[in-house]
Design a protein around this nucleic acid. Structure first.
Lengths: 244, 244
DNA sequence: AAGTGGTCTAGACCACCGT
DNA sequence: CGGTGGTCTAGACCACTTT
């Protein structure tokens, strides 16, 4: 954790705690620099980080103003359905519907960068929030993870957390593609809705710290259960729109 | 024009001119600082600006690499349906279905931070890509923008660009919430699909540089037409998942 | 006039990458 | 190991806003 990240984190917490109201202003950069006992440049780095998340806005000659008190919870929660649910004060659940090893399809071999036909593990899970089942998840795990995943219990609530704690494997990067689809007949059966009713689909490829592909997933949520939120600024953005 | 903007502009031009190939690397920050006869910090400021546009990426310990020779990536495209379509080589179209001023509802007054009941402008548009109508867009503009929007022609392809070029008003930040919904009867009629068929919904609040709210939008896309992509890393992410 | 954010300088040390 | 980007410092001057 760098110093400017620490300062940003502290300011972010103080803002969401209501120490500074929306529309109000922060102490000046000079005063913040004195308070944190750091150079002004370091404080500015932290402020710009929060501005890129839409939490703050600077008005030249006037000050830094609070634009939003919302915490933009980031990647840590996005990685894991269970960890996200817990931070929201909800109880996540999960059950494995099916689990099978199979030789990688050409598309999977490409996604996992395999030379030869190796075995991948395909797991279908149903996920619930506070007892209500809201999502079905079809995950394909890369060959190097198969044994680890297979060793986990079927009702393991957080696979991501288990991988991290037991094997030290951390998800460091993920690409998400979000769109809407009509429920297939399998979706309909798993989620208890009519066929061709709307679902929010999130396709995901995730990678370990060393860049190795870990898993590809296809999650389908009932409408009205979750939404994905993105804050984007001129300064920096990770979101883009693609033709599909 | 500041110095770092001038350097960014010059580098951007040299990259677009093919002086550095895609995947290739730039001279080191140290060498660039000597070349431009500026401090390294100033050169870094320029490089970070280009990185935020998706033109460059930095690899620590290794160098700055050319990611794309195209201008206008990320947020710039996200701000505007039309500008995004153009960078993808597609022809955007748009037509206004209805346009009406009304007094702000309580929810709108909150979103736009109005004290009194002022007039907002609600516009419904249909958007097309290469002649195919794929999206309906319901936008509510803040009172201070109403006169400017009203002065634009109904078939103005890019409202965002028009606001920028004619009035100097730039969208600097936006929050997006993405989920799936069933088509309402109005959606069905506008888009030519069956009622309750799946649509991808993107709700948006956008803000000017000074933090003033500009517009709130509700865009609904036909499935299979576009997807939203998010790249997120441990280091930084703007995406989050919310209960809805 | 005083205070604020925006930019710039000229150093320094660190973590990381390649050889 | 030397070179690279990432961070940080302690100043300086400017443009802008507020009083």
């Amino acid at each position: 954790m760098t110093i400017f990240q620490t300062i940003a984190y502290d300011l972010s917490r103080r803002i969401s705690d209501g120490e500074f109201p929306i529309g109000g202003s922060l102490p000046s950069e000079h005063q913040l620099a004195i308070h944190y006992e750091r150079a002004r440049g370091t404080v500015r780095h932290a402020l710009n980080l929060l501005a890129s998340r839409g939490m703050l806005v600077a008005r030249q000659g006037s000050g830094w103003f609070i634009q939003s008190t919302l915490q933009q919870h980031g990647f840590t929660q996005l990685r894991s359905f269970a960890q996200w649910a817990l931070t929201k004060g909800m109880k996540p659940s999960g059950r494995v519907v099916s689990s099978a090893t199979m030789t990688a399809s050409p598309a999977q071999a490409r996604a996992f960068r395999l030379d030869t036909l190796q075995s991948v593990l395909r797991v279908v899970r149903i996920r619930g929030l506070d007892g209500r089942e809201i999502m079905c998840e079809r995950t394909v795990y890369a060959p190097w993870l198969v044994d680890m995943i297979a060793s986990l219990p079927g009702d393991e609530v957080s696979v991501v957390q288990a991988l991290e704690e037991r094997f030290g494997i951390v998800t460091a990067h993920a690409d998400h593609s979000i769109d809407a689809v009509a429920a297939s007949s399998e979706d309909a059966r798993l989620l208890g809705v009519r066929r061709s009713s709307p679902l929010l689909r999130v396709r995901r490829h995730s990678f370990a710290k060393d860049g190795r592909p870990m898993e590809s997933g296809d999650d389908r949520y009932l409408p009205g259960s979750v939404a994905f939120e993105v804050a984007s600024s001129l300064a920096s953005s990770t979101l883009s729109r693609t033709i599909s």
